[in-house]
Nucleic acid binder design. Sequence first.
DNA 1: CATTATCGGGG
DNA 2: GTGTACGATAATG
Length: 778
Amino acid sequence: MIIFDCDYVAMNETTTVRLFVKDGDECRTIYDDSHSPYIYAFPKVDDAEKSIMDIVIVNKESIVKAKEIEKVERKYGKERKKALKIYLQYPFHVPEIRDEIAKYADIFEYDIIYTRRYLMDKGMPLLSPLDMETETRDGKEYLLSFSPSKGKPETLKVMSLDIETYCEHSGMPDPKKNPIIMISAADSEGSHVFTWQECPDSKVLKNEKAMIQSFFEFLDASSPQIIVTYNGDNFDLPYILKRCEILAISHRFVNDMKIKGRGNTNTAEIPGMVHIDLFPIVKKTVNISRYKLETVYKEYMGKDKKDIEGSQIWRYWDDPCLRGELACYSREDAIATYEIGEQFVPLELEMTKIVDQRPFEVSRASSSLLVEMLLMKRCQDNGEIIPNPPQSSVLAKRYGDTYEGAYVVEPIKGVHDNIFYFDFRSLYPSIIIEHNVDLSTLDCECCKDNVAPTGHCFCKKTKGFIPAILEELLMERMRIKDSMKSASGMRYRSLYSQQWALKILANSFYGYLGYPRSRWYSKESAESITAWGRQYINDVIEQAKGWGLEVVYGDTDSLFVKTEGKDLEKANEFLKTINDTLPESMELEMEGYYARGVFVTKKKYALIDENGKIITKGLEVVRRDWTGIAKKTQRVVLERILKDGDIEGAIKYVRGITKDIREGNVPIEDLVIDTQLTMSLSQYKTIGPHVQVAKALKERGEDVRVGTIVSYLVLKGTGRIRDKAIPADEYKGEQLDTEYYVKNQVIPAVARILQPLGFGEEDLDNKQVPQSNLDKWF
DNA sequence: CATTATCGGGG
DNA sequence: GTGTACGATAATG
């Protein structure tokens, strides 16, 4: 059997952990009340212990919070000190008493989420086969002991989930008013659509309530351990919850669902079921133009699916002839979500096994937090106190810390052909290990032969905490890569995910050292790593020159070089030679070949591969609150540059568009600006154009509320933009503020690409005389 | 200049 | 819930 999740209940003076286990085809809950919350206190005044007793044993209301105070010795840094380990009844007692205790003692481990605390302390492995000994008390199964099992690994059942809602107005649907009209689900067996109006290829129920209940029955029968969604944290799950409240539907899926956070930072959690929202995972893992479900399915998976614009869904539902298409779209959403899950869930589960924390948390954690989960566990295993996170004053200071980054080469601005992209990422882990970079080794008195270009030295006498862990991770990765050579099928895929997870984790240590919220923050270490990195990379650059390769751009973890024609052979030879000269643990990798690229400034570039696929970095492309003409012009400019290598053509195109705007040759819908209201009208301190227009709409009797998308146009006139803005649907052919559209929309959208290349407003605006040396073209 | 507000994903 | 976002950009004041 395996544990795939856990939570806890605090009642009857005991904190009881619930372990959700899968045992063959059966899932059940095993309880454990053998562990209590606690914090550590290092006394700093004489009567500390007595004072603490007063706080925790009997507070003002004579409520007993502490179960026991144990005297222990713990390592903190290089010291070994006496500490009080204060066991408490419930996790929420910790924030209640910690500030009081802090007056008499230095407190530690006071902010560790209880389930994390439990898993670390018990050394409880998640998702690994276990044998468990249990006993039954009060009809519940309680854990006595567990041990690793040689049994077969369990496979978790995954189901995807997606809803469609009815919403006639602009903006997003409101669960208080707009019903769910379809629920789709997909798993390894197939896909299902639930709905409540006559519709082909669907299970048709009599109303919304019956539909949701029918879906829940299906969910119970199918009983997946993992639910995957696309943005389910912020949309589908909270929406289902709200509808169930309104429709008085009771089911464990919604009764126990917890929505945490607010706005677009929600998480939606269901006890005993692992909800994995794929949207944040895809966003942090792959670089694509946008992260809409359709885009991910196309650009990452290489597959097409039907798309219906959100604002049109209600029309498809109202029209019996179109309803089947809507069901098809909904089904495809669920299938796409499931298939994207097939790509990413295995990675998350491997990461779960490495850090031994809940998959729900692991799947939502940044890479820095994953590193921290691992370090906390290892720290504890070493018998050391876990360092506290920075307090807000320290944090503010750290956010202000700047250190010389890792820029290696400023980009050679402009368009370049035949670009090979080399990746240095594995260099940083190697530097950390090689130079023993760690807080515990920083600036010793003895090792003056291991000095970074920053002047900081790192002691080589004993292996540092972080280098030791990193070395283990990299060795494990090598072992797995080795096993992959003789593996195939499922086994190969599993190994692949394992080594991928290890790679992500290993590559995150450098970032973690410079991450302001880090418990093991070390600016000196981080800047020493980049400084050493620059040495190695500069050396590579020098060698590249010797090969006749031009380095177009280099940043923290990447290097772009240009060849004559597509000289793959030369690039590979170069790579091999470099890797022969680098220390064994360091490796330069070739990540890709691009037919053409445009480099604008550091961190801003765009590349096109041989299939015409464009990749951009730092050149944010499309935003809803840009006009259509600005988006379109930017897209065409990028295409002209990358597909045709034609900057002059791109500039001519922009000048043409500015002319079209002035002459009224741009369709009005391309000039409409859509902006969403995020507050009620009275709350605005500064009145932007969309707020002004929203007020006018309200005067007119329109339903204006939070979430409404206001569409407006800017008319000719003087003064602030808001004074010239009118609702788009009131436009009757008046003169538009063409200067606004040229100067505030189109030119800024392309200037972020063209300005750094030396083309200013005067080159891009047809009313002005080109100033650049390209004026001969006009 | 500083401050305030919006974008993303989802329908 | 022993915790919570962020980085970039545009308009107003």
